[in-house]
Amino acid sequence: MADIVSADVRSRMMAGIRGTNTKPELLLRKGLHASGFRFRLHDRVLPGKPDIVLPRYRAVVFAHGCFWHGHDCHLFKWPSTRPEFWQAKIGRNRVVDARSEAALMEADWRLAIVWECALKGRTRLPLENVISACADWLRSDRQRIEIRGE
């Protein structure tokens, strides 16, 4: 199936997709900050350039978009156009995620992944519950947490 917009328009649309400061990330940052947590953003020194870095807790938080990271939820659907491209692209993203997670754990960082479906869509959780789960995890000694929609 041919694209419904020109290559220039598609390029401009794709360039507008944010990699940082996404809505799910901003929701998490606002909630954690209001709960008293202080953090750094997008530390380039750490593997995977985590969205939120909490050095005091030796913890990082990733706000993963379900489409870009190939999550198995209702927000992810394989595109019908150029399937080979998208399978390679999302497959690479998954490999990079796994590598980054392993490197962070090996460096003794604690890891939280909050999926987009936990914050939007029909399976979303109340924001207070997501922030509370993150805060409880930060105060605990658990190594890893993954928060996803219901």
Rank of each mutant, 00 (worst) to 15 (best):
M1D: 13
D3I: 03
I4F: 00
I4D: 01
I4A: 01
R10N: 07
S11C: 14
S11K: 15
M14H: 09
M14Y: 13
A15T: 05
I17H: 08
R18Q: 14
G19Y: 12
T20S: 15
T22H: 08
T22L: 09
L26V: 14
L27F: 04
R29L: 10
R29A: 09
K30N: 12
K30P: 04
K30C: 09
G31T: 12
A34G: 12
S35M: 11
G36W: 10
G36V: 07
F37C: 10
R38Q: 09
F39A: 00
F39Q: 03
R40D: 05
L41H: 07
H42K: 12
V45E: 14
K49E: 15
P50S: 10
D51K: 13
D51M: 15
D51S: 13
I52W: 03
V53C: 01
V53F: 01
P55L: 00
R56L: 07
Y57Q: 14
Y57V: 06
R58I: 00
V60H: 00
V61I: 15
F62D: 04
F62Y: 06
H64P: 06
C66H: 03
F67I: 03
F67M: 01
G70N: 11
D72K: 06
C73W: 09
C73S: 10
C73Y: 08
H74M: 04
L75H: 08
L75E: 05
F76G: 04
F76L: 04
S80L: 04
T81R: 01
P83M: 09
E84I: 11
F85C: 12
F85M: 10
F85G: 13
F85N: 11
W86E: 05
A88K: 14
K89P: 03
K89L: 06
K89R: 13
I90K: 13
R92G: 03
R94A: 09
V95I: 08
V95F: 02
V96P: 03
V96N: 12
D97M: 05
R99W: 10
R99G: 10
R99K: 14
S100D: 15
E101K: 14
A102V: 04
L104S: 04
M105I: 15
M105T: 14
A107W: 07
D108T: 06
W109D: 01
R110Y: 02
R110N: 04
R110P: 02
L111W: 13
L111N: 08
A112N: 09
A112L: 11
V114K: 11
V114F: 09
V114A: 11
C117P: 01
K120H: 06
L125Y: 00
L125H: 01
P126S: 07
E128K: 11
N129Y: 05
V130A: 05
V130P: 03
I131S: 03
I131V: 08
S132A: 12
A133F: 05
A133E: 11
A133W: 05
C134P: 05
C134M: 15
W137T: 00
L138S: 05
R144K: 13
R144D: 07
I145Q: 05
E146C: 13
E146W: 05
I147M: 14
I147V: 15
